[in-house]
């Protein structure tokens, strides 16, 4: 069964504002997850510069031997990325769905401060539901 290992959301300056891991594989402590977030932010920026064609928006998919990393960048520079088992399908759609939840339950929440870590109960609840739904879809295949 294909599985999602973890989910990261980083703000436009590369700070980690949300991290969640699913299952025991690829679990990281707080320092490591912060490091991965800022590393990815820099790599993403460098990839834009390195691209031989103009208008490159950065890495969308990184395929490694043991994991895939799918990244989605919103218009405001907030990046969402999931680390999952190699070959997991439909991650773009999941990232879009997570982005939608972010705009609804984080940005419309008057108690959320921009660019700060996300602590919104409704976002957590709906995110869990979205990931579970995605798992059910994957299992059904």
């Amino acid at each position: 069964m294909a599985a999602i290992y973890s989910l990261y959301i980083i703000n436009k300056s590369g700070g980690l504002i949300f991290y969640k891991d699913y299952g025991s594989k690829g679990r990281m402590d707080t320092n490591d997850s912060l490091r991965v977030a800022s590393l990815w932010h820099s790599m993403h920026a460098i990839s834009q510069q390195l691209s031989p064609t103009t208008g490159c928006s950065g890495i969308e998919l990184l395929e490694a031997d043991t994991f895939d990393l799918h990244c989605f960048q919103s218009l405001t520079g907030t990046k969402f990325f999931v680390v999952c088992e190699p070959g997991t399908q439909h991650m773009e759609a999941l990232l879009k769905a997570i982005y939608e939840l972010y705009t609804d339950y984080v940005l419309k929440n008057p108690f959320y401060e921009m660019e700060m870590p996300i602590r919104c109960e409704l976002f957590d609840i709906n995110l869990t539901q979205a990931i579970q739904k995605d798992r059910v879809v994957l299992l059904g295949r």
């Binding site: 609804d104 339950y105 419309k108 929440n109 008057p110 108690f111 602590r119 919104c120 109960e121 409704l122 976002f123």
Partner: peptide, 9 residues
């Protein structure tokens, strides 16, 4: 609908 009250409130 979209509001989560922080614990300290």
């Amino acid at each position: 609908k979209f509001i989560s009250i922080p614990k300290d409130m």
